[in-house]
Nucleic acid binder design. Structure first.
Lengths: 252, 252
DNA sequence: GATAAGCTTTCCACTATGCGAAAAGTAAGA
DNA sequence: TCTTACTTTTCGCATAGTGGAAAGCTTATC
């Protein structure tokens, strides 16, 4: 009886199996075999198969016709699209993002921390973006970007600790970093993949909580004094935008 | 025994309950009450509550702290982001979309048909997009756009019939429309909400199947001969891009 | 403070649903 | 064709999930 309580609090086991498999499919290769999913999840072959088949019927998972392997499915686009379309944060910010893009020529992103990852909820691609460096990715570890650092700096200590524990950084950030990111009006970071620099500011709601990061990503200009000027110019654009929506962002 | 087969083929009931509730949350208001979800789904209060609680633990659903109402959750962003990041269609098209945007000044979108709706999988916002008319929506009924018409025209008859049955159009499209959309090299449609026009072309894979629509949306220029010229110019850009990725799009 | 509305938790009986083990089926490669 | 690797199906069982009911809790409003 007492042993049942934790499991009751844990929710329905079948839903837990389903969400576990979805999470596993969201990491690793695009198509994964039934047997590898079963082994990694600890579920039996038959159970794994049943759950995947059920998810496939709802288009949250698809099965490759030839190889019979499984991957995430397009039904997720529809669900996440519905989520995005209803999010006041994005609705409020949307009209301004083009203007910021035009004023900065940079790619503008709205990011949130979801399960320890930075998820890009909206993006307006900037000018002068070359074909090679157009960033398509939808989420990344927080330490990889200025936006992630802003969000981490304002997150609860538990989330910070988790992120540090799972980070592959040779030099993990310190508590002083956290404080700095929390207090700085904006954060700048060089993106290793593209060599671009990113400026990020926190987006606060009416109660003062940081609910997102607003960032601008552009190519590195000439080295020199113009750097700091450009960064400040961009940061001011971002901050002004964040301020504009702040009073409209309630707890909802 | 024979009566059990359909239900076995139906997959796990609990997963079906969960995906049903997710689908219901993706329509209607952002936050919905437990009792209305229970009534509309036909599940009991207790069952509905248990499923929602389980989905909330996986961040696929969130509950409003004050009102206790439920809505879709940010975990969906992460899952759909993982889906998008692995989709060869988007990876192949991504480098070209900025160029098409720059050549046309229009907003470029990659769309797919998911459960009878047009879902926008990728978007590069164009120039001269005004604050008022920046389109944020992630999906819409197919008849509302040129991209939707392209996808409908190439879809199976069953999908076409479903779309016609659920359409609110005063004048539903005919079989001749379907044939026209299927055969035309490009489709043009005036978007009612924004008053913009959209040009869309099919994206085919190596086997010749239409797997997506590529579209450009811009403001209506002056009326006159320039219309057709502009439309053709845009369509050519789109077609060239679709051709570039075609041979790399296998069944996968 | 009282009330109303709605959610959350608890309990219980029931059963059908979900489980695992094993067999059968399928596709690809040698 | 045979073999291998993997998926899909079958079957018996027990437990996980269900519905119903009621009590308790929370929030908002008057």
């Amino acid at each position: 009886m007492g042993l049942e309580l934790p499991e009751q609090k844990g929710g329905l086991g079948t839903v837990r199996n389903a969400t576990l498999l979805l999470r596993m499919l969201s990491g690793g290769e695009r198509f994964q075999t039934l047997s590898s999913l079963a082994e990694a999840s600890g579920l039996s072959l038959a159970t794994t198969h049943r759950v995947l088949r059920s998810l496939a019927q709802a288009d949250l998972v698809v099965q490759h016709p030839q190889s019979s392997r499984y991957s995430l499915g397009p039904g997720l686009l529809r669900l996440s699209g519905a989520y995005r379309d209803r999010l006041p944060l994005l609705q409020l910010l949307a009209p301004y993002l083009v203007e910021v893009r035009d004023n900065t020529k940079a790619t503008i992103e709205v990011s949130q921390l979801v399960q320890g990852l930075v998820v890009i909820a909206d993006r307006v691609t900037g000018e002068n973006v070359t074909r090679v460096f157009r960033d398509l990715t939808s989420f990344h570890p927080p330490l990889r970007s200025a936006a992630g650092r802003v969000l981490l700096g304002h997150a609860e200590l538990e989330i910070w600790s988790d992120a540090i524990a799972t980070a592959e950084a040779a030099a993990p950030p310190t508590a002083a970093d956290r404080q700095r990111w929390a207090e700085a009006p904006y954060v700048v970071h060089l993106l290793e993949d593209s060599g671009e620099f990113q400026v990020a500011v926190p987006v606060r709601d009416r109660a003062g909580r940081v609910v997102a990061a607003l960032s601008a990503t552009a190519r590195v200009p000439f080295l020199g004094e113009q750097d700091a000027r450009m960064e400040e110019h961009i940061a001011r654009q971002l901050q002004r935008t964040a301020e504009m929506v702040r009073n409209s962002l309630t707890d909802e």
